[in-house]
Design a protein around this nucleic acid. Structure first.
Lengths: 247, 247
DNA sequence: AAACATTTTGTAAAAATGACAATTACTCTA
DNA sequence: TAGAGTAATTGTCATTTTTACAAAATGTTT
């Protein structure tokens, strides 16, 4: 570990800084950690791996690893996710960075958290590289996690709930042609509350970018449901001034 | 600069990773950049410094600097802001991290953007350390900025607009006892639109955590305004289910 | 044909919205 | 001291939205 450089407490002593060689600053590393939320029929889970390498060997953890010296952050997030879980084709977004001084035993490592919401059955995680196994975990019964991954996970879940109302990330989780019930289930599951069916339906019908199709559900043991679809162009138009669902 | 380590494209070649010595990862640095928005009577500005050190000497830039090897990210943000501008006692929040490979000429540096909204006359920036001068700039006529600070600034402004509707950051910018007009001005200025006075007032009166006081404005050359105050406890109560102003 | 399981529509009172107009309460000035 | 000036505040009213329910509709299964 590198020699400890005492932080300068006040601006008036700031000239001390010039005595710290610039090299002393370039001894840190970055990592990315991926929080993949998997939704399937009213159930929300998160993808964890069991670590097959130190530190925290055998612990459950978010898929995450160090960023290469000449690798872009976003690129690293996708690369690491694929390395450890073989998952491709999920769109992630940055959530928050975590920089606690002692969060990593090997040295100073800042980690950048990334998040995605996917239909659980759409992807097929397969442990690879140093990951021993992958598993979908319910949010309600999580094991003790490596590093500060528990904090990263909870921050990501908070962000997911906000984002669900602002961005059409729910499109990742229901079919292109969907029923209002399917749509409602996603919101109830992720937000953790329930809505009146009739009233929810009325709200949906006022949303410009959700279009009622002529097609209906097939082969159901009850009255078939109308199908709806998402119009991305109309969404762009109406989200200009900051669209949010007000459920 | 360190030797280039070729990123591993596929998981199947991942064992290559073991050939990269761990030290190769610990050659990066972090920085923090602070976006301080200053509001005053219908005017929104951002605090910039003129750099007095390379790289980008003499360029206008966000107050920002490298994080010490044993310094917490949040701590660094406040320390750096004070070092360069002598500002204390502003509460900042993390916005986003920027990790472009070539964003810093001295090596691999990831920067974490922090943001705050303050009443412009409450704070008294004074250039210190390597900052040549500080200046409040209008968002509409910004100079060319150092590094990728322009991108950081715009991302922060977007976040400011969202946050203004979700969190009571406007309390930093108006007096403890305020008039509805003062309140409205903040929202009009930052969001960049105008609202009908009467209708805006009605909305405010329905917001549980904004309480009408018995006191009124004094010494104004017109009908004195009722004063209102913010009830933090009630806000906590009502923001549980994700409060947002729907202006 | 009746029972089921949902989807879908309907209802009615209450509340919120939006565009404007009118009124009110102070200070300042002639 | 009676306007004039200035901005705060209240009022109107037609329209739309919300809420909490109840009822009807449309398929399949028995």
């Amino acid at each position: 570990m590198e020699k400890i450089v005492k932080p300068i407490p006040h601006a008036t002593e700031a000239e001390d800084m010039y005595s710290i060689p610039i090299d002393a600053f370039f001894k840190s590393a970055f990592s990315v950690d991926c929080v993949i939320f998997g939704y399937h029929q009213g159930d929300l889970k998160v993808l964890l791996i069991q670590r097959g390498a130190e530190p925290f060997e055998n612990f459950w953890a978010l898929p995450g690893d160090l960023v290469y010296p000449h690798e872009d952050l976003d690129t690293a997030a996708y690369r690491v996710l694929e390395d450890l879980t073989s998952i491709q084709d999920v769109r992630m977004m940055q959530v928050h960075s975590f920089g606690g001084v002692n969060r990593h035993p090997l040295g100073r490592v800042i980690t950048v958290g990334y998040m995605a919401l996917v239909e659980l059955t759409d992807i097929h995680p397969l442990a690879s590289h140093w990951a021993k196994q992958t598993k979908w975990h319910s949010l309600s019964k999580l094991p003790k996690l490596a590093f500060d991954h528990s904090e990263i996970l909870h921050a990501s879940y908070d962000r997911l709930k906000t984002l669900l109302l602002e961005e059409p990330i729910w499109t990742r989780v229901i079919p292109e042609k969907f029923t209002i019930t399917e749509f409602q289930d996603v919101f109830e599951t992720i937000l953790g509350r329930t809505f009146d069916k009739g009233n929810f339906r009325k709200k949906i019908q006022n949303v410009k970018f959700l279009k009622k199709l002529t097609e209906t559900q097939q082969n159901v043991r009850h009255r078939p449901s109308q199908l709806y679809s998402f119009d991305a162009k109309l969404f762009e138009k109406y989200s200009d001034r900051g669209f949010v669902f007000d459920f």
